[in-house]
Design a protein around this nucleic acid. Structure first.
Lengths: 226, 226
DNA sequence: AAAGCTTACGGTATGGTGTACAGTATAATC
DNA sequence: GATTATACTGTACACCATACCGTAAGCTTT
């Protein structure tokens, strides 16, 4: 299967049936997590799995299908907190937190979620559970649906901002960019910005997330849908 | 410059100096708006501008540079409402609305903003103006910075969800996906989801945006930064 | 054990992409 | 008119997604 250099030799075949769609999706997600979404290509993935490129197409329809599968697979790691808080606002906050954790664990997920509609049975189960819990807390289903969406969008957007572009980078890409760009400007023209530069670079972090999430959840529960 | 079929003939050169970086960026933004971000490629862009592909590289460093320039160019269309509301919450809402309008006018912008750090003098000017206005309304600069970021993230995330994937599609890609996926499931297992399916498909719209935005702005103004 | 069959595996080819490099023609200067 | 600088661009290369088709592995049938 491998020669002494560690790369697969052409002519050496994988045994039949030794590959599954699940393996492929897992490897693709791991590759995207480790090397970034732009590094996920069919040739690289095939090399990791020690198979020919076209073998992959026996299990996935095309790259779009693979991206959808990655998104659903990543979301499968999401666990709703148990027991679910009965207070609707607390429930929304708990769900947002759990979602953010999952998205940060797979840094390429947010941008996938924000650039294509990702739906599957798992998503429906999650929505149904949340709607039921919100209903027990007194929320009408329609208001619950809107609240779920708002928290979903806020959290996914936040995670996209937070996820570092390159691996092994302690601070977010935005933090570095703020510092770099501001250094090239005349500070006296932007006194206020300069005075909060530290806040701006630290902005994609837990406290900032919690702040907005709490505000959003409280406001959503207070205002019923028209 | 063109032959009778409308395509540029090789050998026919553009006059010197008849191309500017601004033209290129504008054409690229228009191309992305009309055909989608995935259709924006250097060869296609060159064909639109009736120049050779490599000519573009005299004005832009690489495709990343072009994407950054597109993002900044698109944001330049953003106009803060005049006069600025003095109430901080109202100001945040007004700004979020203006930002959403600009993002929807250029459907490829949200995903660019969410996948790379985009900063430039225009951004700094906007932040400085907002911080000053929030300060006049009684907000501390640090709290203002956090509030600006929260609204920015919520609005950009929302716009990304809203922007249709394909042109000439009246309803969002998510709306169609919700309907399609739900049709393939057993409705009795998801009674609540089924009862709010209409809300879920209509969720990426103006009322939903306003709802979350108002909740967020109110919560942000009420809770000062720790 | 041999033969035959199904089909998973994967090599090759095609048309796309981003961009380095080198050539060429044009406008300005001498 | 000759020279020169440089804006424009053709070619080349590495890489990508994927259609098509050959090949062989493992099963079934004898």
């Amino acid at each position: 299967m491998r020669d002494e250099t560690g790369v697969r030799r052409p002519g050496q075949r994988r045994p039949r049936g030794s590959l599954t769609r699940e393996q492929i999706v897992n490897a693709a997600l791991r590759l995207a997590d480790e090397e970034g979404l732009e590094a996920l290509s069919m040739p690289v993935l095939a090399r990791r799995l020690e198979c020919g490129v076209m073998t992959l197409y026996g299990y996935i329809a095309n790259k779009d299908d693979l991206l959808d599968a990655i998104a659903l697979r990543g979301l499968a790691d999401l666990r709703l907190p148990q027991p679910l808080p009965s207070d609707p606002a607390a429930l929304l906050v708990a769900w947002g937190r759990a979602l953010r954790q999952t998205l940060l664990a797979h840094p390429s997920l947010p941008v996938i979620f924000l650039s294509r509609p990702v739906l599957g049975p798992g998503i429906f189960r999650g929505v149904e559970t949340l709607l039921a819990a919100l209903g027990r807390g007194g929320q009408a289903p329609a208001a619950g649906a809107h609240a779920i969406y708002a928290v979903l969008i806020y959290t996914t957007g936040f995670a996209a901002w937070e996820a570092p572009r390159t691996r092994q980078q302690p601070e977010s890409a935005y933090a570095a960019a703020w510092r770099r760009e501001f250094a090239s400007l005349d500070p006296s023209v932007f006194p206020l910005t300069g005075s909060v530069l530290e806040e701006l670079t630290r902005v994609a972090g837990e406290e900032q997330f919690e702040l907005g999430l709490a505000a959003l959840a409280a406001g959503l529960v207070a205002a019923p849908t028209p």
